[in-house]
Design a protein around this nucleic acid. Structure first.
Lengths: 343, 343
DNA sequence: TTATCCTATTCAATCGATAGGATCTCTCGG
DNA sequence: CCGAGAGATCCTATCGATTGAATAGGATAA
C-alpha cells in the first residue's frame, strides 16, 4: 500500500502494461483489446486508481471552469443578494455548458494576487476599476475575460447596465413628486476617490442624478450624500444620521435596494411614516423588494440576465468565437409603495 | 510572436538561460544573481510570460481551492437563500485561509460525474444520500471531504443539525396552541423514496414531527403532507391546494422558510388571516424571516456556523490534522408573529 | 517460405513548472 | 601557477496524464 494516491504508472505496473495502455483503457477502449482492458480496469479498481484531475487538465489545456473575480471577500459578497442573483444567471449558463464556477476573492486584499491561483478557462471580472492592473494582467496571461459593473473598455467584452438612465429617471421621479430635500444613500466607493474620481456604475448613477437635478435647477450641493458599505445595517445607521439633521430630507434615494431596506428600518424605528412623511427608493429591484413592506419603489436592473450574458460572452471568448462584444442592458423605474408626493 | 502563451522555455531561450533559472527568478531569487534575474524578468515581461497556474498546481500538488459538491443545478441552488448563507459561512473560512471556492453542480444530472472535473484539495458534500456512490468515489480518490445535510457516517467528517429536535419542538408548539389539523409542507425528496425511504435532514425532521404527534396521540396519517421543490412559488401553489380541502388545516408547518413564505403568499391571496385564522411556521430562520410580515415563527438552524465548521473540518482534513470529527449543531424555536392559538 | 497486413501494445514527446544535486566559473590564497 | 572555495547556473527527474508514431506479433496470402 503506497502512501500517496495510485497513479497510472502504478496501475500499469500492476497490470503488466504500459501507461499508455492504462490511459486507453479509460479513454479510448477501441485501441486496446477487451481482455487487457478488463485486466487494467481490475488493477485500477484494486489500487483505487482514478485519473488525476490536474494531470488531465494540464494535458488537455482546459479546466471546464469559469472564474468569477470578486472585488471583496467572499463573506461580504455573499451577504449581498445582488451577487446571489448575478451568480444565478451565470450559473444557468454553466449548468447548460457543463462548467463549474470558481469564486475567487481577493488574496491578501489584492485582486491581482488572486489571479494566478485560479485554474480557470476564463474570468468574469466584477466591479473593478478597469485601469488598475488586473485587466493588464489578464491580457498578458492571455486568459479570456468579461467585465461587469465596470467601465466600457476596448479590447475586452463587457456587460453593463444603463445606470445613468436609471438614476436619472428615479431622481426625476422624486423631484416631480415635489421632493427638494433629497438624501442620496450611496455605496462606499473605496479610498481612491480623491485622486481618481468616481468610476463604473457608481459614477454613472451619480451623473444620472446630476442630470435630473440640473433639469430642476439644482446641483449635487443641494443633496445630502452618505457613502456607506452596502449592507442593510449600514443603510440603517446612515439613515439615522441623515434624519438627525435639523432640516431633514423628505426623500431617501438609495443606490442599492439593500441600503433602502436599512433606510426603512431606521425610519420605522424613528416612527417616521414611509411614504407619508419620507419617501424611499432603491436600486436593483431584488426579488425581496416586491415583498418588502412598504413595497419598494426602485430601479430595476436585469441582474440575472447580466449574469447570463456575461457567462455567454465569456464562453464565446473561450471558444474563440466572438471578439469583444459590449452590451448595455436597460433599466426601468418600478414604482411601488415606498414613495409619495412631498407634503 | 508564438501563437500560444509564452512558457518558461520561451523565456529561458530569450534570456539565454535554463528553465530552472526562470523558475528561480520568480520563486527563489537568492539562488540566482541579481543581474541574471533582471534579464530574465525583462525577457518574461516582453514575452508576456506568467507561470502557468495548472503547471504549478500539478507540481505543488495543491490547488488552494475547496469544492462544494452540490446536489442540484447552480441555477436552482443559488435561488435558495439557504445556500447563499451556507456559502457565506464557508466563505469566511476561505477568506481567512486563502482558499477559493469551486461550485460544482452535477454534470449531466450526475453528481458522480462532476467529481473528476473539479480540481480541488477537498470537497464539502451537500445534501447527499451518503450511500449513493459519491462517498465511495471520493474515498477511493483519496480526496478529503466533509458531509453536510446528510447522514452521519463513519469514516467521514460531517456537520449536521438537530433537525429532529427542531421539528419536534415546532410541532409540539403548534399542537400546544391547540392546532389539530396540520398541513406539513415538505421538500421534495426525489424519486427514490419508495424503495429507499427518507434520508438525511428530511428523514430526521419527519421523525421529529412524528415524535411530537405521538405525544398527542396522533400519527402522520392525521396530517396533510405536500412534497414540493423548495421555492416560494411552489410553496404558494401547494398551499393553495391544501386550502382547497373541505376540512382545511389550521396550521401550515413548512420544512423550509422559503416554502413558508409561499404559504403566506397563498393565504393572503385567499384572504385568510395569518395567524388569526391559519398559523404558519418555517424551518431555517433565514434573515428574511425576521423582516417578513408577519414575522415568521420558525426553527432556527445556525446556517453560517454550519458552513464555517464544514470548511474548518475540511481544511483540517486537508492538512491531515483531524481525523473524522462529527458535529451536531443545535436548533431552536423562534416564536414570532405568524402563529397563534387555534380558534 | 516469405512478403504483407493488421492489431495490440509500447515509446517517447508533450502539456508547464519546480527543485535537489551536479557542474561550471571565477576569485583568492599559497 | 595551481588548488580550494564560493557562488552562479544548468541537468534532470518529477508531478500525472495524453497521444501520434513506432514496433512487435500473429495471421493471411502468394
Amino acid at each position: 500500500m503506497p502512501s500517496g494516491r495510485a497513479t497510472s504508472s502504478d496501475v500499469a505496473a500492476a497490470a503488466g502494461v504500459s501507461r499508455s495502455a492504462v490511459s486507453f483503457a479509460f479513454n479510448n477502449p477501441q485501441r486496446i483489446s477487451a481482455a487487457t482492458r478488463e485486466r487494467i480496469l481490475a488493477a485500477a479498481e484494486s489500487l483505487g486508481y482514478a485519473p488525476s484531475t490536474l494531470g488531465r487538465m494540464l494535458q488537455a489545456g482546459t479546466t471546464h471552469s469559469i472564474g468569477v473575480l470578486l472585488p471583496q471577500r467572499l463573506a461580504r459578497i455573499l451577504e449581498n443578494p445582488y451577487y446571489a442573483r448575478f451568480l444565478m444567471g451565470a450559473g444557468q449558463v454553466c449548468d447548460q455548458e457543463g462548467y463549474t464556477l470558481l469564486l475567487t476573492p481577493p488574496l491578501q486584499d489584492s485582486v491581482l494576487k488572486a489571479i494566478p491561483y485560479a485554474a480557470v478557462d476564463g474570468f468574469i471580472v466584477c466591479g473593478l476599476e478597469a485601469d488598475r492592473g488586473e485587466v493588464a494582467e489578464l491580457t498578458r496571461r492571455g486568459i479570456p475575460f468579461v467585465l461587469i459593473d465596470s467601465d466600457r473598455l476596448d479590447g475586452a467584452p463587457s456587460v453593463e447596465v444603463d445606470d445613468r438612465g436609471g438614476a436619472r429617471e428615479v431622481t426625476r421621479y422624486l423631484l416631480e413628486l415635489g421632493h427638494r430635500r433629497l438624501a442620496v444613500l450611496s455605496m462606499d466607493p473605496g479610498a481612491h476617490v480623491p485622486e481618481r474620481g468616481y468610476r463604473g456604475p457608481l459614477a454613472r448613477r451619480l451623473s444620472g442624478i446630476t442630470d435630473a437635478l440640473t433639469d430642476f435647477g439644482l446641483t449635487m450641493a443641494d443633496v445630502r450624500l452618505a457613502e456607506v458599505p452596502v449592507t442593510r445595517s449600514e443603510g440603517y445607521r446612515a439613515t439615522r444620521e441623515l434624519m438627525a439633521a435639523e432640516q431633514r430630507p423628505t426623500a431617501v434615494l438609495a443606490l442599492s435596494d439593500v441600503l433602502a431596506y436599512g433606510a426603512v428600518d431606521a425610519l420605522q424605528e424613528l416612527a417616521i411614516k414611509v411614504p407619508a412623511e419620507v419617501s424611499v427608493t432603491g436600486f436593483d429591484d431584488l426579488q425581496e423588494s416586491s415583498w418588502f413592506r412598504p413595497r419598494l419603489t426602485t430601479v430595476r436592473q436585469p441582474i440575472v440576465t447580466k449574469g447570463r450574458m456575461a457567462a455567454d460572452f465569456l464562453i464565446s471568448a473561450i471558444r474563440g468565437e466572438a471578439q469583444h462584444p459590449h452590451q448595455t442592458l436597460d433599466t426601468s423605474l418600478i414604482v411601488r409603495e415606498s414613495t409619495a408626493k412631498a407634503t
